[in-house]
Every structure is written in C-alpha cells, then in structure tokens.
C-alpha cells in the first residue's frame, strides 16, 4: 500500500471528528499506553500543540501512576477539570466607565475582523447601547463599503474617510464625534496585517496612541480576532500583537467548522490573554460569550 493510500485510510478514521474520537477513548478500559496515545492524538488534532498535549498526557500519566485515575471514566472528569482550569474563569466583554467605551479590533488578514465587528455592533445595539463604527481599514479594497453595510444592518453610526487615508485620523475623528454625540461604544476596524510586518505594526501602535490622545484611557479593550482554523501560528500572532498594542481579549472566529481552536490553551498559558467572544456562524447573532466550561465540554461530549 502506498503512502497516500495508507494516509487516506487513516484520515477517514479521524473524519469522525474530535468528539467521536474522545468518546471512543472513554470506554471502560483501563488507562493504558494506547489510551494515552489516542488521547494525545485527539488533543493535537484540536491544535492544542504538541507541547500542550504532552503536558496534559504527562499529568494524566502521573495521576494514573498514583492510582488517582483508574478507569477511563475518571479520565474524562480529570481532563475536563484540567483543561477548564487551563482556560481560567470566564471573562466576558463588559462595557463600562466614561462614554465612549472604545474597542480596538486587530488581527491578521482574513480572520473575520469586519464580520465580528458587525456582529458585535448588532449585539451591543440589542443590549441598548448606541454604537459607532470607525472604518480604520483604509487599505483593503472595499473594506469601508463592507463595514458600511454592517453599520446599516446593525443601526450603528459610521465614521469613514477615503480609502488610502491615515487610519489614525479616522480613529481620532470617530472618538471625537462619538463624544460629541454621546455615543456609548466606538468599535474600530483596522486593516488586517501579518504580525511580522513591522511597518504595519508600527502603524497600529500609532492608531492606539491616537486613541489615547483623543480620549485618555482609550482604547478600553483591544480585541484580537483569531481564526480557529489557524494552527500554532496563532500563538505567534497573539504574542506579537500583544507586544505591539497590548491585547486584552481574543475573539475566536470560525468555530462552526471542524476546527477546534485548541490554540487558545497555549495563548492562555503563555500570555494569559482570555478569550472573550466566539464566532459560531455567519448569522448576525452567531457571536457568543466565551464560556470555558462550555468550550471544554464541547470538546469532550
């Protein structure tokens, strides 16, 4: 049998997905090497990373050696506890303090920043907040138009400049306008940028500085949008965006696919940045609060 054939055969096995896999591990057999290996595979396939998976499996081994876990039934409980603990307690996105509450949205290209902003605007509008969107993505073709459509859909106000203009200027105007009009929340869209492009990261730093110039203490939230389909590179993204503008929360998008977004475990462990929102679909109300227990339960049930 050729390499590709063998591989395909193997992959059709994994196709059942994470949940089914874990279920099959949790039959009533004892905690043996095979169980642990399968567990490691399942964890790695969720993008937790080889190191993270090894850590969890290692801990599990220790517990088993001590006799604290005997059967796979208790493995499930152990894992749920262990992994939920890794994520810490829920930290929802809270609007508070002096108006306007400024949210700066950042991320690499194509993660779903503008869509997330649209959904977030809609959600905040439904909660009774007035919202203003700042079209800070002046680079990508038609990004302003895309945000404009979302503003229309959610009933948010929009401040925009021309395509190609300085994003910092847009942001300054938006915060000024929001203050003058007594708007509750300003959400700033920015152009997607790879975290490795230092001139673009400098531009982002400037946007943040200008926020603070327009309003002391702004931005109150720096939301990094992360694509759940991304693998280990998402950790690098978070690291470098955090170094540049100080990320306060993650919005994890595209969880409605088959990707599990396991990288958030590493993000929480290495950088202690909480996931605040998750995107689970294309609908306006498919943006939800991140609840660690639910996230972990979804992995194991």
């Amino acid at each position: 049998m050729g390499f590709f054939d063998r591989l395909k055969q193997g992959l059709s096995k994994t196709k059942q997905g994470f949940i089914a896999k874990v279920e099959s591990i949790f039959t009533d057999r004892a905690v043996d090497e095979e169980t642990l290996e399968e567990l490691e595979e399942t964890l790695i396939l969720s993008d937790i990373g080889a190191a993270g998976a090894a850590e969890i499996v290692g801990h599990l081994k220790e517990m088993a050696a001590k006799g604290e876990i005997k059967q796979s039934g208790s493995v499930r409980e152990f894992l749920k506890k262990e992994m939920a603990a890794m994520l810490g307690s829920a930290k929802p996105l809270v609007i508070f303090g002096e108006k306007p509450f400024v949210i700066l949205t950042v991320g690499v290209n194509g993660v779903g920043k503008t869509t997330t902003i649209g959904k977030l605007a809609d959600r905040l509008r439904n909660q009774g907040h007035s919202v203003m969107l700042a079209a800070g993505d002046t680079f990508r073709a038609a990004a302003i138009e895309q945000l404009e459509i979302w503003a229309g859909r959610s009933g948010a106000q929009l401040v925009k400049h021309q395509s190609g203009s300085d994003p910092s200027a847009v942001v300054f105007d938006a915060i000024e306008a929001a203050r003058a009009r007594g708007v509750d929340v300003v959400i700033i869209d920015t152009a997607g940028r790879l975290h490795t492009k230092s001139p673009l990261m400098e531009e982002l730093k400037k946007v943040k500085r200008v926020c603070n110039k327009a309003m002391q203490g702004a931005p109150h939230e720096v939301l990094l949008v992360v694509d759940a389909t991304n693998g280990q590179n998402a950790l690098r993204q978070t690291q470098l965006f955090n170094e540049a503008v100080g990320v306060t929360g993650i919005a994890l998008t595209k969880l409605d696919g088959t990707a599990k977004g396991g990288i958030v475990f590493a993000i929480r462990r290495d950088l202690n940045i909480p996931v605040k929102l998750i995107g689970v679909g294309e609908g306006v109300d498919d943006l939800q609060d991140f609840v660690p227990e639910d996230f972990v339960r979804a992995l194991f049930e």
Partner: peptide
C-alpha cells in the same frame, strides 16, 4: 488555503 491553517487543513482539503 491559508498557510497558517492548523490540523484542520486535511478536513478542508478533503
């Protein structure tokens, strides 16, 4: 396909 794609790349491609 995004070069940053993780483990899910196989599911997507398949």
């Amino acid at each position: 396909a995004d070069a940053m794609t993780g483990q899910d790349a196989v599911n997507i491609a398949k």
